[in-house]
Simulated scan of single mutants.
Amino acid sequence: MPLTKPNQQLRRDLKDAEFALESAALEIFHKAQAGSDAEFLEAMKQVGKLHELADRLVGYGEEVKAGRIERQKAK
């Protein structure tokens, strides 16, 4: 069953947010490499959290695609 336009937009929005999180994680990682060991370890915790959030968004996008999550029309 094809996705409705609102659900297509929701899935695109989730993919865009996931990409933004992954990009931010990569930027933090590259900047942290120039810092001290303590700064690097703290940055890696942040990077890990961003990756976890990005993974959740991918999962939500798959649920939208499968029809388990739907965007309702505004009332």
Rank of each mutant, 00 (worst) to 15 (best):
P2V: 02
P2I: 01
L3G: 15
T4S: 13
T4P: 09
K5H: 14
K5D: 15
K5N: 13
P6W: 13
Q8N: 12
Q9I: 13
R11C: 13
R12T: 13
D13N: 08
L14F: 07
K15L: 10
A17F: 06
A17M: 09
A17W: 08
A17D: 09
E18W: 00
E18G: 13
F19D: 04
F19K: 07
A20H: 10
A20K: 14
L21D: 00
L21T: 01
E22Q: 02
E22P: 01
E22S: 00
S23A: 01
S23G: 00
S23R: 03
A24R: 02
A25K: 00
A25E: 01
A25F: 01
A25H: 00
E27F: 05
I28D: 05
I28F: 07
I28E: 11
I28C: 12
F29R: 04
F29V: 04
F29D: 05
H30I: 15
K31N: 14
K31E: 15
K31S: 11
Q33E: 14
A34L: 08
G35I: 11
S36T: 08
S36H: 06
D37R: 13
D37Y: 10
A38N: 05
E39G: 09
E39L: 09
F40A: 10
F40E: 11
L41M: 08
E42I: 11
E42M: 14
A43C: 01
A43Q: 02
M44F: 05
M44E: 04
V47Y: 00
G48A: 03
K49N: 01
L50A: 01
E52C: 04
L53Y: 02
D55F: 14
D55C: 06
D55M: 05
D55Y: 06
R56P: 07
R56T: 06
L57I: 02
L57W: 03
L57P: 03
V58A: 09
V58K: 15
G59M: 03
G59A: 04
G59Y: 02
E62C: 05
E63I: 13
E63V: 07
V64K: 07
K65E: 14
A66F: 10
A66S: 09
A66D: 09
G67V: 05
R68H: 12
E70N: 10
E70C: 15
Q72V: 14
K73R: 08
K73W: 04
K73T: 08
K75M: 06
K75H: 11
K75R: 06
